[in-house]
Design a protein around this nucleic acid. Structure first.
Lengths: 122, 122
DNA sequence: CTTCATGTGTACTGTGTGGTACACACTATA
DNA sequence: TATAGTGTGTACCACACAGTACACATGAAG
């Protein structure tokens, strides 16, 4: 596999950051890097997809910065939030199986379950 | 935290293996180690909780060996199966949210959902 | 023209992961 | 009593993860 492989995370956040930057000069790479707590050179590598992994903590900060969904950004990095992982690990028989059962359901069916759960029907 | 911390995985599989061993001498540490493809000294460290991580692949083999549930053994190691992870990463908005919503539901409620999904009601 | 901010290249680091290789002491057994 | 098998201690290893530190070239702004 090539060095700059097709991981879309870097390109995605770069685009998002630069779009913010058009109206807010505080969204330079350097300043965003400082706000999420990494060196500019490192964020640069991240944005160019140079196999520079971000920790979950930084990804969550970046999601706040760029007004993105945390779970989506984590997923783009191949990760899953620790809180979600913990839910599964505490009741693996239940949750691992449920997820496998839901794997092939279409979105609208999963959404229906979510709605029913939220309505407190359970 | 102490070196041999309170991770229960090692003690758990040791007990299980030794119970098998009472009726089947092929369940010595060495032979099981060979069957799952690690060095005996390493499995020894695993069983004594000496911070010796097993890869998912070996854990799944061990689950077959010891007639244990794969997801449960993985969970005891603080891991989640790659297949389950992939389901979540492919549709993070749906699944991460669903899991958080189900977090505090009692077992029987989750089971009801599983049953309904399996009955094809969705 | 200088000065400041910006993005990037290069080198380096510590910790965790997932192991191997081999020697050692003990035990069962034939 | 040889010897085969058993569990363990010690040393070592490669690679992934998650970065820092600093120099450099460029571009914008005063």
């Amino acid at each position: 596999m090539r060095n700059t492989d097709k991981n879309p995370f870097g390109a995605y956040i770069r685009e998002k950051r630069e779009s913010f930057r058009k109206t807010d000069r505080s969204f330079s790479l350097r300043q965003v890097a400082q706000r999420i707590g990494v060196e500019p050179s490192y964020l640069s590598k991240v944005e160019r997809g140079e196999n520079a992994p971000l920790s979950e903590e930084k990804i969550l900060l970046l999601a706040l910065e760029l007004d993105e969904d945390q779970d989506v950004l984590l997923a783009l990095c191949g990760k899953i939030g620790k809180d979600v992982q913990e839910v599964i690990r505490k009741r693996p028989l239940l949750f691992a199986q449920l997820i496998r059962d839901l794997k092939n359901l279409p979105d609208h069916a999963v959404l229906r379950i979510i709605r029913e759960v939220r309505d407190g029907k359970w």
